[in-house]
Design a protein around this nucleic acid. Structure first.
Length: 692
DNA sequence: CTGTCGTTTATTTTT
DNA sequence: TAAACGACAG
């Protein structure tokens, strides 16, 4: 029990101890949010609340995983004190952890049980953003809507917007011609999804809500199961997630929400800051607790951050403070252009390295991915290893998606979107028009079944023999793969697919024609091996089941291995993957400001602090978006523990064209007495700089 | 059906 | 700059 309150301040203890009724905790950056959350779960368990009655919701798998680890490390000793001689204790604890998961994984879990209520089958597939976009394009094609006047990406985002407002296709009343078109696509899109026996990411929340609304019994079942609900990052919940949680919490009202309105940076992804701002209206009896003590940063950094965020109008009143030292001044440096900026950053890093810091102590943050390039080039030139977080996702890579598409077809033969991806990969003489005809082919099946359709279609007398052959061949391939899935395990199945379709040959050719060299090919093969490593987790299961679980994990775990690790320690300019670098990670980190949320580093560089870039030019016209940019800046600044270095350039090359920039307005919001300004005109080696 | 060539467009992205 | 898309010829 002592252990539960160890190292907690009074506010945190208060937040941990109020068991009954709604609680809202506003937790500033570095104020021990995760600690508060995990200790609360441990406390609930120590009060004899069944773990099965506790639900903890996070936004990322990573956060969920961390929470699980930390909770078991707190609870284990507590429980083992009670029955120290019991050898089963450890096992028991592990089996009795509460359900901790992302919104989407919890939604998925509910759907696996309840989706027949909506007329889908249980083996439905989950579509990612790519699939969604393809489906929208296809639907628009069928409705003969011109993609020039209606950009499919925008159409999709509009659909998603309507959908997450929990408006069903039938009940959507568009206000004008433009929205009328969106509505048509929305209706067709949703119908098509159901036909494909697929759900998209939004559906993982929206459909459970739909079920809860139409079946009181079902809702009650889950309300009874989860009497205690905790939600992390409450400021980032969207409307549908908000309704989802509040339906579940309605009966027992034991809702614990934690978050920080000042760190809401995902409104563009429909996070609705009002959910946290209105908590008190929703739950008038709620206890509100502010965690304002920061354990992370120096006083100077905290004061600078306050200076920035205080310019925002819309926020819950609070003031961050810290017992830490004042620390050094914040360095703000003007540079000529992005090359000069990069070399300035490196010279600074070298200075810190001389003072005993190591690579992993540094983070370089930027507003957009495009900015990483100049920094990367400079790092490669000087031979410093680094890693980039985000950018290209492992499961977004072509070779991975191709193989997964084959797996998807085996599991859900209605998924003809997966078919669309690989019907001609590797190229086998089947084209778009053939595909369309196959799709329209009627089989005796009530449900569309790709393999069956192919079997029927390949017998068509009217077809030219060449095409019949191609289709028969394709059918055989899929049938063989399907048969293999009956006997082998997942790893063997993937291997079989790669061999059966001669994927390696195809990749080799593909890599060559794409004007990139063999390096590219090697990387791709390496990725496939990596895929098999992940798949080996399921080797004890029969292929069908293993594949199902695997696909499910992939759908929800889009961000595994999102770290692209690079180093230049090898031959000049040669980029080598560090993926298998065992946790050593003696590298510095480059990432967008968004990706940095929740992390901390002794030294943080924020580069490209310019009007038009940060705040981004698209955000400056809109006051709401400008406030979000400011919160983003606040997040970036508060990542720093000891040193904060901000740079901006006078001139910048972006997308191949030149532009002249002014320093960001956010720079001016930092109290001047905390800043060590380094302007170009005051540089001693001005002549040097001109060279850049 | 396939490959090439010019045109277009470009934030952020926990799932 | 560079990747992604669509038009068009082979």
């Amino acid at each position: 029990m002592d252990k539960i309150f160890e190292n907690l301040n009074n506010k945190q203890i208060e937040a941990v101890k109020i068991i009954d009724g709604p609680v809202l905790v506003i937790s500033g950056p570095g104020s021990g949010k995760t600690r508060c959350l995990t200790h609360r779960v441990a406390y609930l368990m120590s009060q004899n609340i069944e773990p099965a009655n506790i639900l903890a919701v996070t936004f990322t798998n990573k956060a969920a995983g961390e929470m699980r680890d930390r909770i078991s490390s707190i609870t284990e000793p507590v429980l083992s004190n009670k029955g120290s001689e019991n050898h089963n204790t450890k096992y028991m604890i592990h089996s009795t952890l509460p359900l901790i998961g992302t919104f989407h994984s919890i939604g998925l879990r509910i759907l696996r049980n309840e989706i027949p209520q909506l007329g889908y089958r249980r083996n439905f597939t989950v579509f990612d953003t790519d699939d969604q976009l393809n489906l929208v394009k296809r639907v628009m094609g069928e409705l003969e809507i011109d993609v020039k006047s209606f950009n499919p990406r925008i159409v999709l985002s509009k659909i998603s917007e309507v959908k997450t407002q929990l408006i069903l296709p039938e009940s959507y009343e568009p206000k004008d011609y433009y929205l009328e078109t969106i509505a048509r696509v929305y209706r067709a899109y949703q119908k098509e999804l159901k036909e494909l026996n697929a759900v998209d990411f939004d559906d993982l929340i929206v459909l459970p809500v739909q079920i809860f609304k139409q079946s009181e019994d079902t809702l009650e079942k889950y309300q009874e199961a989860w009497k205690y609900i905790l939600v992390d990052e409450y400021q980032d919940t969207s409307y549908d997630q908000y309704i989802f949680i509040n339906l579940l919490a309605k009966k027992y009202r034991n809702l614990f929400a934690i978050g920080d309105d000042a760190q809401s940076i995902y409104q563009f992804r429909r996070a609705d800051i009002r959910n946290i701002l209105n908590f008190q209206k929703d739950y008038p009896e709620a206890k509100i607790i502010l965690l304002e003590q920061n354990y992370r940063s120096t006083k100077n950094i905290i004061t600078a951050a306050q200076g920035i965020i205080s310019q925002n109008k819309n926020q819950i009143q609070k003031s961050l403070w810290t017992d830490n030292n004042h620390g050094g001044k914040i360095i703000i440096s003007e540079t000529m252009n992005e090359r000069h900026e990069a070399s300035f950053v490196i010279s600074k890093i070298e200075e810190f390295l001389r003072n005993g810091l190591t690579a992993k102590d540094f983070a370089i943050l930027y507003r957009t991915h495009a900015q990483s390039r100049s920094i990367e080039e400079a790092l490669i030139m000087s031979g410093y290893p680094y890693q980039i977080v985000g950018g290209l996702k492992f499961y977004d890579r072509k070779e991975i998606k191709d193989i997964i598409a084959y797996l998807k077809i085996i599991i859900n033969p209605s998924d003809n979107l997966a078919l669309e991806r690989i019907y001609n990969v590797p190229s086998r003489g089947i084209g778009k028009s053939t595909l369309t005809k196959v799709r329209e082919e009627k089989t005796n099946n009530l449900r569309p079944d790709i393999i069956a359709s192919l079997a029927v279609y390949m017998k068509k007398e009217t077809l030219p023999p060449k095409q019949r052959l191609a289709i028969a061949e394709f059918h055989k391939t899929l049938a063989d793969i399907s048969k293999t899935a009956e006997t082998k395990n997942l790893g063997a199945l993937i291997k079989y697919i790669i061999k059966r379709i001669k994927y390696e040959d195809y990749l080799k050719e593909f890599s060559l024609t794409k004007q990139s060299d063999y390096e590219n090919f090697d990387d791709r093969m390496e990725n496939l091996r990596e895929l098999m490593t992940v798949a080996s987790k399921y080797e004890d299961l029969p292929a069908k089941e293993g594949t199902e679980r695997f696909l499910e994990e992939l759908a929800l775990l889009q961000d595994t291995d999102r770290v692209k690790s690079l180093t230049s320690n090898h031959t000049a300019g040669r980029i080598k993957s560090l993926k298998n670098d065992p946790a050593g990670k003696q590298v510095m980190t480059l990432m967008t400001t968004h990706a940095s949320k929740g992390l901390e580093f002794p030294v943080v560089f924020i580069v490209g602090m310019e009007e038009g870039l940060f705040p981004h030019s698209r955000a400056v016209i809109n006051p709401t978006e400008l406030e979000e940019e400011r919160r983003l800046c606040y997040v970036a600044v508060t990542r720093a523990k000891e040193h904060l270095i901000i740079t901006y350039t006078r001139f910048r090359n972006i997308y191949g064209s030149h532009s002249m920039n002014l320093p960001s307005r956010f720079i001016g919001e930092i109290p001047a007495n905390l800043v060590d300004y380094q302007l170009i005109d005051s540089f001693e080696d001005r002549e040097e700089i001109i060279r850049y």
